[in-house]
Design a protein around this nucleic acid. Structure first.
Lengths: 148, 148
DNA sequence: AAATATTCTATTAGTTCTGTAGAATTTAAG
DNA sequence: CTTAAATTCTACAGAACTAATAGAATATTT
């Protein structure tokens, strides 16, 4: 399961994705529109900035904005910022690698091998999907709903 | 990431899978062999029994044993027992379904649709893999290592 | 009856998660 | 150069969850 931070970050990024190229957007506006606690959102946006996803402008007329095109922001990268590794065990990740204490031999561990396959499948699925997909899907469904 | 309970359960089940058909195995033996805290393992095995994965026998000569063939125990079912839903959001699961509080409209939510796709991919990968795969992989790697 | 195991009930220390409060800093505009 | 409007930084706190332990109760075999 995603943490609230990771989930809220997807909400905020989708919102900023729709505004891509329009200049800074206020934290308050994002918070109100996406139903995210204002102060909590502050920390989230700051973290996204530190990780090179968002840019910001301080002072009057300031706010946050997406740095990259929505189709260049994949979900694996975003989720990892807040929730860390996507794999189910530390020993099947690259960045957060750590051997299990209880493991006899990491080289022959069957659990590790099988869960590594699962990790690769999931990570690839998340890497293949971007903010642009989320935005496009929402637009498609909204249109379809309005027509009926 | 898997909880310790889920991880330990895979260790214990792999161990019991190798003993499938040999009758009850002592908690203590599993705990020692798999480096799992004895008392903690008790709770895990009991949970696996309540979920129809293991059988047990009390008293002298008792212990735990796998009820089904290792190739009929898939990883999705095991993981769900301890860690609940595999999907990244409550709104993309069946059993643990719950709408997000912050969501405007669950029917048009793009995040939901995209993460539902990812969920299905991951769940299918876990359903396709069983205790038999873990055991076979471990044997293969142990043989290969011994030869060299 | 004794020995051996599982089963049940409670508890606890530590960590993480979600969220809040308030002060400090930066920027734009008048 | 002052004021208003923003982000940024530091600190904290309650709630929930995790990992693990302790001990008594129950069941089974010999």
């Amino acid at each position: 399961m995603l943490s609230k931070k990771a989930k809220y970050s997807l909400n905020a990024l989708s919102f900023l994705g729709k505004r891509y190229g329009d200049g800074p957007v206020l934290i308050t506006e994002i918070a109100e529109e996406e139903n995210i606690p204002r102060k909590f959102l502050e920390a989230i946006l700051l973290e996204l900035k530190k990780n090179g996803v968002l840019g910001s402008k301080m002072g009057k007329g300031g706010g946050y904005y997406l740095l990259k095109n929505p189709e260049d922001v994949n979900l694996a990268d975003v989720i990892r910022i807040f929730d860390g590794a996507i794999g189910l065990l530390p020993c099947v990740t690259h960045k957060y690698f750590e051997p299990c204490e209880e493991c006899h031999d990491i080289e022959t561990c069957g659990i590790r091998f099988v869960l590594k396959e699962v990790r690769d499948i999931t990570v690839n699925a998340l890497k293949d999907r971007t903010l642009a997909d989320i935005i496009a899907e929402e637009k498609k469904r909204t249109r379809r709903k309005k027509r009926s």
